[in-house]
């Protein structure tokens, strides 16, 4: 636990030492606001909720979160600090957990900073704050899923650009598996395929949570995804930490 905290704190501070954090926060908040207020026509729709925000968030995350995750292990390899970290009395599991939690916490901070949107809709109308809260929970869980995928991929290469591109592709595939237009492409008699895609697809689970129905199965889906990716991350590191 002590090791996890130490690594988490170092990593989190690392985000704020470098411009990454500020660039990320500014872009995230600006796009989130823009999507919600203008593209989502918050005013014109005359309906005070954050539905447009939660519709756009998966797409926003698709590009922004791999950028946060790509440095987690790639940078460690490039600097050679992986040798230092792995010869300290820290287990691979602790290092993987600490780093992931730092990135997740950071993504959580970015979400918290979108609170003015909640205040705005509450000022404009009378939204169902329970649904909004569920949406935030879904978004946070989804961020964890994306980051875990990104962290795992960043442990494969010291090249951050490759890590970024691969992570975007992986997240996109997982997302598209549950995306309605894609599911509609599957012929109707292959209902099994559609169901399977929906089960692994990230969007399906996110959407059902963000509608305000917090089903344990959807929560478990994200937690399983995170656990699986972090496990793979640890295995990859164990196998090829020195390459």
């Amino acid at each position: 636990m002590r090791n996890v905290t130490a690594i988490l704190r170092r990593e989190l501070a690392g985000y704020f030492f470098t411009p990454v954090a500020y660039v990320f926060l500014v872009i995230f908040l600006w796009l989130a606001g823009w999507f919600t207020l203008f593209l989502g026509q918050l005013y014109e729709r005359r309906q005070a909720d954050l539905e447009p925000f939660f519709t756009f968030v998966p797409w926003l995350y698709l590009f922004l979160l791999p950028a946060i995750a790509m440095r987690l292990w790639s940078e460690e390899r490039r600097n050679g600090t992986i040798e230092l970290l792995m010869t300290l009395p820290v287990s691979i599991g602790q290092a993987v957990t600490g780093k992931f939690l730092a990135a997740w916490l950071f993504a959580g901070c970015a979400l918290v900073l979108t609170l003015p949107l909640v205040i705005t809709v509450n000022y404009l109308g009378d939204p169902d704050n329970g649904v909004i809260l569920a949406g935030y929970l879904g978004a946070f869980l989804m961020a964890g899923g994306y980051l875990a995928i990104g962290a795992c991929i960043s442990s494969v290469t010291k090249n951050q650009v490759i890590a970024f591109v691969l992570a975007v592709v992986a997240c996109l595939l997982l997302m598209l598996a549950g995306f309605k237009p894609v599911m509609d492409l599957v012929p109707e008699r292959w209902a099994i395929v559609t169901e399977a895609l929906a089960a692994i697809g990230l969007l399906t689970h996110f959407e059902s949570i963000s509608k305000g129905v917090v089903d344990l199965r959807d929560v478990l889906y994200f937690l399983t995804l995170i656990a699986f990716c972090l496990f793979a991350n640890a295995v990859i590191l164990e196998q090829k930490k020195a390459d």
């Binding site: 690392g14 030492f17 600097n79 010869t87 009395p89």
Partner: peptide, 17 residues
């Protein structure tokens, strides 16, 4: 590992710290 102090080749350290 607790018993060891190690300076890897090139003495890597986190550059932003």
């Amino acid at each position: 590992k607790e018993k060891i102090g190690y300076v890897p080749e090139g003495a890597p350290a986190y550059p932003d710290m």
